[in-house]
Structure formats: C-alpha cells, structure tokens
Design a protein around this nucleic acid. Structure first.
Lengths: 341, 341
DNA sequence: TACCCGAGTCGAAGCGCTTCGACACTCTAT
DNA sequence: ATAGAGTGTCGAAGCGCTTCGACTCGGGTA
C-alpha cells in the first residue's frame, strides 16, 4: 500500500504538505499543489481510512439502524436506506448497517468505539428505549419517526396525523359519511409504532371534526386475514363507502377481496392509500394516495446530520406535510349512503 | 473517552498487558486478567475502532454491495442483507453498506483505503465488470451469484439451473405437457442477470429432456402487463396447463388474472413459483414452490469470507441444491391436455 | 532602512492501539 | 548448584495520518 510518505517523497515535499493539499486546510502554491496531485495519481495513492480517522477523530461513517421486525414494509425501508446511503456519499461519508435487534447496546457499541460519527435511527416507537441512549451519546443522531419524549432529539418524519386527516377530508369532501381505516398488522400497533398510531389519531380526529363515522381495524398480511377483516368490517358497518389503507402489502389482495365481495372501486367503495406513489400507480384502478416521501426523508436526515457534525443547529422536529394525489380509486359517495351515516 | 492507558493505570499494569488480556494473544495470569477486566468494566472502556484498525491492519468491517436496480425484488435482497449483517456480527464484524451504483470504483475505494477487510457482492451479472476488479483487490471477496468467468472468485448461489429443471420435472411428473416460464421483467434478462438466465436454461433443457413444450416470456410488474402477457401466452399456446413463475411481485396479481380468465388453480392450471416460502404460503391456494434460501446464502457468504480472512481456502463455487415443496397450486394435468402437446 | 505581515512550507508531536523483543522469575532436568 | 525452558509482564516502536507551532521569504508600510 502506498502511504502519504511515499507521495511526499515522490513529490519532494513534506507529508504535511501533501496532507494540506488533499484537505485544503492551508494555502499551498498552485505549483506545489499540481506536483502533489501528479504524484498522487502516479502512485495511485488512497489515504488509509483508519489512520485518517485516528488522527482526525472523524471516521466519515454514519450508522444506519434499520428495523427487521414483523409487519414492516420492506420496500419502503429500502427506499429510506437507499436515500441515506446515496446522500451520505454526496457528503463523502459511508454507511454502516446495523439491525435494530442489537438494541440500544448496538448504538453504544458503534458510538463509543468511534466506529461512526453519527447515527440515523429508523422505525421509532412512541416510547422508544433508544431515545435516552441517543441523548447521552457523544455524537449527533437523527431519528426517522419520533417518540413521545422527543426533547433533545432531532426527528424527521412525514406528518402522519395530517396524513390520516387528509384522507378523511378527501373522502368527506366527496360526500362519504362512513369511513374505515384499514391499518397495519396489530403487532405494529402493539409496539406503539409512531407512524401507525399517529395516522390513527389523525383519522379519528378528522372523522370527529367532519362529523362522519370513522372505524379502525388492524389487518394482517395474508389473503384470508384481509378477506375476513373486510367482511367483518362491512358486516358491522354496512354503510361504509370509504376506505383508508395504511398497509402496503395488502393493497393488491384488498382490491381483489373487494371485487370478490362485489364492491366496485370507486363506484361502490372509494379507496385511498398511504403508500409509495409507484405502488399506487401500479394498481387497477390507480389509487388515490398520500405518498410516503421516503427519499426526501432519508436525504433530509443525512443532511441534518452533516449539519450537526459541522457544529450548526437543526430543528428538533421536522414534519413533512402530506400530499394527497387523487387518482381513480376515489369518487363521489354512492347516493344511498347519505342516509346511512 | 477512556483509553487503554487509563485502564492500564487503573489496573496497575502496562498497556500491552491490557491489550493481551483483551485479545488473549499471550498468556496472562488469572489474577491480572481479573484485575484488568474489573478496570475495564469500572471505567466503561471501549477500544477505539480506528486505532485498533490502524495498529492491527484489520478494520473488522465487511462491505456489502447491494443492487438498487429496476426489477429486483426488494424483500429477498433484504433477507440477504439481514443474514449478512447478523452473521457478520456473530463473527464480531460490522457491515458497510454500498450501493451497486458506485460501480467498480466504489469497491476499489473502500478496499484500497482499508475501510473494510473483505467484500460481499450481490446481484452478479453473467459478464460482470466487477469480476476483474475483485480479482485484483488485495482482500478477499465473495459473490452472491456467479459470472461466466468465475475463475479466481469465490461464488455462492442457489443452483438456478437445477431450480428451473425441478419445476419442469414436477409438472411433467404430474402429466403436464405444455409449460410456460413467466420470468422477470425483460430488463433483468437484458443485463444478463445470472439467476434469471440460468433458470431459463434449466427450464428449457428440462423441457427438452422431458419432451414437453416449454415456452418462456418475461413479465413486467404492472397488472396490465401481467394480464396482457398471460392472455398472449394462452392465445399462442392454448394447451398450456403448467406455469413456472420466477417473479415474486407478480404472484398475487397473477392469481387474480388467472381467475379473471376463468382458469382455476390447480384444476385448470398448475402453478409453481420460485420464491421465498412465506410468499408462497401466503397465497390462496398456497403455492408449490422452489424456495430461495436467502438466509442460508447470506450466512454462508459471510462464513466463507471469515474463513478466507483467517487464511484458509474455500471452494470457488458453491451451488445450493434447490428444494421444491409441493403445495396446493399444482395438481394432475387436466385430461384434455394429453392430446394437446 | 527597519519592521511587520501574510503566504507557503516543514518538522514533530500526537491519535489509541497492537506487537515484538527483552527481562525477571519460577520450575524442571541435569 | 546450574543451564534451559517456560510463564508473565513491560517498554517501546510503530501503524499512517492530521495539525500545531515555527520558520523562511518576499513585499508593503512607517
């Protein structure tokens, strides 16, 4: 391996000069700069990451903690991860992949050993045990999602309360008076996952505010579960004409179930999903949806982290406003429904 | 941050002694060992990763290169990634996440800067430009999948040729005489992805060997595309009674399409998929399938890498034999078909 | 002319760890 | 008694980089 000393010798300068050329932290004459750069290229020099990290107290690596839990929708997570890695590279950082099952200890491990400079943590629960740990860690972190006690933490997320509400508003505006939220598997609610809970809140509040019926039910991923859940729902509340779905993997089978039950979308039943745009557009009919801006959130998370690493402040909580795109799956409430609510 | 010197002082020994206690590379009296361990705990000492890496020439980090390309099935990739991370942790290593879009340069970057000790590379094409690079790198690597020129590389994969063949055999054994392979999106074939090509080969060879008709078609992910593809297929080859599907995301909609076309599974049409077990089991009816042992492959990849890091040899190519599990989606060929082939 | 200042460069001191050789013992085998 | 072979421990020399202080050398100012 070629070292900085080799480059210095080749260029006839001190190692510190090479270092300054490469970092730009001191002024170096154009002449010397070029000579050094030529030597770097000639020798194929790559700074040793460990040595650099040791000397500069910066590893240029971010930790990304991803959940590996039941009920999580994998493609969305992957979008986050991709955005994080891509953005990190833009800022000349790499990404260390941690799984959430290492728990709070895993965070301490990578932080206290200076393996990483900062952390991005996904899939935050309302009472997340990692919150206190992150607060004490000697390095910045950003959470995707936010716990109830978010003081002293930097969080970024889609505003799921508003998302839930905007779905209700959209349907209510179309004249629907009885709505249901078809949510994530119950395990996700049970562990108090922020996005699921908050959507629920937004949905319920908006239903109340608009004076419409709003019932909520979790839903597992299997076809049978979907069928049973929907049948039960329509049995208990036959007047329902508007469905809000926050559960990507069931979207396909759900359309199927509705068809099987003889409910046409959107003539008999309007459907609005909270999911990635490409998923919504792939369905027949295309779904009205609130998009999950995974790309933006992931990128934003890294940008905030870099800002913090540079010593500047960032807002404690950033909530991205939801965007609802109306497509073919929502329409005016069928006439009969007006009496039902 | 507490350093090894702090621990040494606290325990009243030399820093080298602390190091040897922690690494076990020299015999240390039980007495001293305990004293040092107590100091370590008392001070909450964590070795600095960069310093350790610099001194020992080992970062204890593996690179994982994942594809971010069109047509790839994300959940399976995630299973690989999870298995890699989990297994790496078992061997006290961490995982650096790279995206394939950094290309061969990305590999050189992390390798030549000693950021990582070894690499796991996923989604190998038949003529993969990273092959030559990996061969030249001063550190071991393992490919998940394998290129045509695999000399000097360590590869591990499911035996997709055998997988394709075993699907044909299963259907032929049930009396089916006209089969179709519903494959990945055409983009995946166009970039000569190993698993897709090899399944095709296995399918075609087995069809020939068994003397049955075997037609092949790629299939995009949208509902419309699936409908059109299947309609076209059955138009061109009305005798087809057996379908092999290698395309996870279309599985749900495909069942739907068949229903819509009036083909009952398995009475009119047998279906065998190449996909993760849980996906197969979630369908109605449950699908006969060849499983993709992502977990095993990921774990195996890391184990091979660790073996290589320890200086031992590992086989150049490991192909895992496919396992076909018969479930409810395959049955005897309908009677009329016997005349059709 | 004497002085100061900024630009450009160098040398050396770490960063926190691993590892090699050396040293001081304590046992056995002579 | 005494060489030889282990044990257990220490000190010091790096690993390859960054960064601080200091130095030199013009050119502008008083």
């Amino acid at each position: 391996m070629v070292t900085i000393a080799d480059v210095a010798r080749h260029a006839g300068v001190a190692t510190s000069t090479v270092s300054y050329v490469l970092s730009g932290k001191r002024t170096i004459s154009t002449d010397t700069q070029e000579r050094v750069q030529r030597s770097v290229r000639a020798l194929g020099y790559r700074p040793n990451a460990s040595a650099r990290a040791l000397a500069s107290q910066r590893s240029n690596v971010l930790a990304l903690v991803i959940p590996l839990r039941t009920g999580m929708h994998v493609p969305v997570m992957m979008q986050f991860a991709t955005a994080v890695v891509t953005t990190a590279r833009r800022f000349d950082h790499d990404v260390l992949l941690l799984t959430a099952d290492e728990g709070p200890d895993g965070l301490e491990r990578v932080a206290q050993s200076s393996l990483v400079d900062a952390l991005v943590v996904m899939d935050i629960e309302l009472h997340d045990e990692r919150g206190p740990v992150l607060r004490e860690l000697p390095m910045p972190s950003v959470l995707i999602g936010y716990p109830d006690e978010a003081d002293g933490l930097t969080c970024i997320d889609l505003d799921f309360v508003a998302a839930g509400a905007s779905c209700v508003d959209h349907l209510a505006d179309l004249g629907h008076r009885s709505l249901a939220l078809l949510g994530t598997p119950s395990a996700v609610y049970e562990r108090q996952t922020g996005f699921a809970q908050r959507t629920l809140t937004g949905f319920a509040e908006a239903a109340e505010r608009r004076g419409v019926l709003g019932v909520e039910t979790p839903c597992e991923h299997t076809f049978d579960a979907i069928l049973t859940t929907v049948e039960q729902l329509l049995d208990d509340h036959p007047g329902i004409t508007g469905l809000v779905v926050q559960n990507e993997p069931i979207i396909g089978p759900l359309l199927d179930v509705l068809r099987r039950l003889g409910r046409r979308v959107p003539e008999d039943m309007s459907l609005v999903a909270i999911c990635a745009d490409d998923v919504a557009e792939r369905q027949v009919p295309q779904l009205s949806s609130v998009t999950i801006p995974a790309e933006r959130i992931g990128a934003q998370a890294v940008e905030s982290l870099i800002t913090k690493l540079e010593g500047s402040d960032v807002p404690g909580l950033t909530l991205l406003p939801p965007t609802l795109t109306a497509r073919g799956s929502t329409g005016p409430a069928p006439h009969g429904d007006l009496t039902t609510a």
